[in-house]
């Protein structure tokens, strides 16, 4: 990867060269394609809740999962179920990629569903044992 101006130009300001760029060889042939990076990208402030990205529902489930360590897993079942419904609706309205680290909304839905099912099953098992 080229990281400076040609010597023909003599003394020139050294510009910042980003790290982690895909490797390049020859006239544009790809070599060892870099995996997609989940780098944070500059953007405007992200303080507003997206109408298409019900992120908080995912966060609640995660908090519930943590709470599971000290409380009955009902919270997980409830928030997980709400999360699945919320993300399902969001996907129907076009949200393909969520701000959740999992990215793809299908993965988020699967994650929430597994959490909800586990929470529900554990709750039932606790009650009947």
């Amino acid at each position: 990867m080229r990281d400076r101006a040609p010597a023909a130009f003599g003394e020139a300001a050294q510009l910042h060269v980003p790290e982690g760029l895909p490797a390049v060889a020859g006239p544009g042939r790809q070599v060892d394609p870099a995996p997609p990076t989940a780098t944070a990208t500059p953007s405007r402030t992200a303080s507003h809740m997206a109408e298409y990205d019900p992120l908080r529902l995912c966060i609640y489930t995660t908090i519930g999962l943590i709470a599971w360590l000290i409380t009955p897993p009902l919270t997980v079942a409830v928030f997980g179920s709400i999360g699945v419904i919320g993300y399902w609706r969001a996907r129907r309205r076009g949200l393909v990629a969520s701000r959740c680290l999992l990215g793809d909304t299908r993965l988020v839905i699967a994650y929430l569903a597994v959490a909800a099912l586990a929470g529900g099953a554990w709750t039932v098992w606790s009650l009947v044992r």
């Binding site: 989940a38 944070a40 990208t41 500059p42 953007s43 992200a46 992120l55 966060i59």
Partner: peptide
């Protein structure tokens, strides 16, 4: 100036 977006871990 634009700020880096904070990825919220879930």
């Amino acid at each position: 100036p634009t700020q880096p977006e904070v990825e919220v871990p879930t």
